[in-house]
Amino acid sequence: MSAVHVPSETERIANRKKAKPGRTVRFRIKRCAGHGKPASWEDFDVVTEPGMNVISALQRIAANPVTSEGSRTTPVVWDSGCLEEVCGACTMVINGRVRQSCSCLVDEYAPEAGDVITLEPMSKFPVVRDLWVDRQRLFHSLKRAKAWVPIDGTYAAGSGPKESPDRQGTRYALSECMSCGCCLEACPQFTIEDDDAKWDESFIGAHAISQARLFNLHDTGKRLESDRLEALASKGGVSDCGNAQNCVKVCPKHIPLTESIAAMGRAVTIHRVKKFFTSKK
């Protein structure tokens, strides 16, 4: 693989200004028939259009899957949904760094004709096919963290707890997590685990730790605080985090993950101490 480059913000702005529509850009895509099967690279040349993002380039490739060498191949498989960075579906590794492909503009990454953009599936989840991975484990972590408010039921029972705008602001920021998995891809402590029987004991992940914090901050959500702390105190919980802080750097929603991890780390310690004393009685 030739080294490709992730442009900085200043470079992206500059690239956008200089990029000319109608140039040909090369996509180098890692193809794989499924988890455990061998992977190989294929190149595709795509003529750019104004405002083109990686997804629209993939759409052009799907419509006419011919490689740069001119041989016809199968359409590339990928995952997407909203196309505006709110659903989290389209996460992949672009030029070596994990991010959403829908918000990745070709002009910003490949401003000159002949520039190369590489696309790879995330490595921490089993590949379904090509760029599509199976992220069930990420949702499973949310079950471990009991990431919900235990309401009595859905029949009318008045409004929820009053809340200060500050508290709302804090919760809103945490609640924007779209389960995209970038934080897990970047985390050295989170490794691929395709045996779902082991999910309960492997590292729960920064996203779920942060969700535990979110629900502990809600007046009714708090009722499950000790269950959540128990889950975070056990194997694969918050102490597995090595504090590498990679997660927070790649989170597209700027979730304060390290803050959440620190807060939950402290809460788990207090919870352990409390438990120690209450169990002694």
Partner: peptide, 22 residues
């Protein structure tokens, strides 16, 4: 109004007024 109340109970972070109302 009941739909909103329910969502509020489920923890939807609705924007708040200074006093803490929706």
């Amino acid at each position: 109004p009941r739909v909103i109340n329910l969502l509020d109970r489920m923890g939807v972070p609705f924007n708040r007024t200074g006093e803490g109302f929706r």
